[in-house]
Amino acid sequence: MSRLAFSKPSKLKRVGSILPALFIAAIYMLLPTFGLRGFWLDVLTRVNIFLLITLSLDLYSGTTFYLNLGVPFTVGCAAYSLALLNRYLGVPVEYAILPSAAISLVLSLVIFLPSLRVRGAYFSIMSLLLPIVMAGIVTSQPFSLYLGGEGGITYSPLFFSYARGLPVKERAFFLQSTYFYISSIAAIIAFIVSYKVAYSDFGFMMRSVGQDELLAEASGVNTVRVKLVGFLISSSLASFAGSIYAAMRPPVTVDVFIPANTLVPPLTAVILGGMGTIVGPTIANYFILLVYEALWDVIGRWRVVLYMCLLIVLVLLRPQGIVYYLYTKLKRLVSSKIAELTAGV
């Protein structure tokens, strides 16, 4: 009998492992009161929102191994929906966040649905194609007339009407810190949701699809349903990222559809952090994005080249091992399952 398998982890121990994370989250949230402001507070806000994109990618592609290169499509559709709702229907951005995320989710689902039904390369090809098509559409006639063309669509950002009532000195900091809090809360919720899903039975079904789809199908897993629901959860994260980001940072331009902006950093974070682990990519997200941001002043556009080279090296070093260090984590999870089982027998 394996020694490991039958030790039941105590409640206290589990709380103990969450405590440091809570502590770090609390300190992090308090950064503005400790005096952080200006450029880097904005950057942290951005990075928080990018966590939603990273988790969206990790939750679906990290488990099912269907590479979703179309994340910029979902993010971008949400951002443009928000801008369009504001411009053409006059919906204030505060109220446009939810509907625009929903619109983007529905759009993504409808357009990806056919490729979710089948196995093979279709999904990844479709996902690679969509942001490129969208970038073409929003900048070319006749769509550019309605979608703002290269200049994009601008509007007044989240809580701006409220901030106008404040003394001029406080305005900027009020908006900055509010955005930071909102994005932090969104990041924390996204992390908890992703973690719960990825390590639930459903999450493991997504993993089974990734590891041997035919086997999963032939041994009872409704693979189409699993892919569909997984995609839905993952895409809602990306949709919210797009809506919230757009609400805070007008104007919305074609940049959201450009992979160098909305795909390269999250993808690198997912691979560096370990596909499907959620925790790894979350940590990597902060590291990768802060460095990406800092690199702009140093090497400009070469940062994309650098990150892509890093990505290639990481993948090639461990072509199948990008999932390898889930192992220890899983072993612990199973041991608690077994403990429950044997306790019931």
């Binding site: 592609s61 269907y66 290169l69 990505l311 290639i312 072509p319």
Partner: peptide, 8 residues
């Protein structure tokens, strides 16, 4: 490992 090839 197809997903690796897609990424690279």
């Amino acid at each position: 490992f197809p997903v690796s090839v897609f990424i690279t």
